[in-house]
Amino acid sequence: MIPAIGLLVGLLVGLLLDPAVPLWLQPYLPIAIIAALDAVFGAVRAVLDGIFNDKVFVVSFLSNVVVAALIVFLGDQLGVGTQLSTGVVVVLGVRIFSNVASIRRHLFRA
């Protein structure tokens, strides 16, 4: 419950402050968001599975974001930025979907 409230507060703060994102950071934002979503849904599933661990959550989140950013950066340098981004989106998307499916089974038994 408290983490959910924290999420909401973070959302509100971001919306209200509306900080300017530097231009060089903007290409990394979409991939970072998907990586963050993957970490969040993984954490929710772990909570429901009864094996949540805060350190693992933090580390998986940070490594997800950093690796995603690195892939985008590397792809941009190599000229295959969009393809690599697509790859990241596919992998993380599949993971998000199966985690959400697992959460659904936990919550609705269906």
Binding site: P3, A4, G6, G10, L11, G14, V21, I33, F57
Partner: peptide, 18 residues
């Protein structure tokens, strides 16, 4: 740790969306 992360992630979502 978890609450700070939640704050951070929410903030990130909002900023990116904006």
């Amino acid at each position: 740790l978890v609450v700070v992360m939640a704050l951070l992630i929410g903030f990130m979502f909002a900023v990116s969306a904006k």
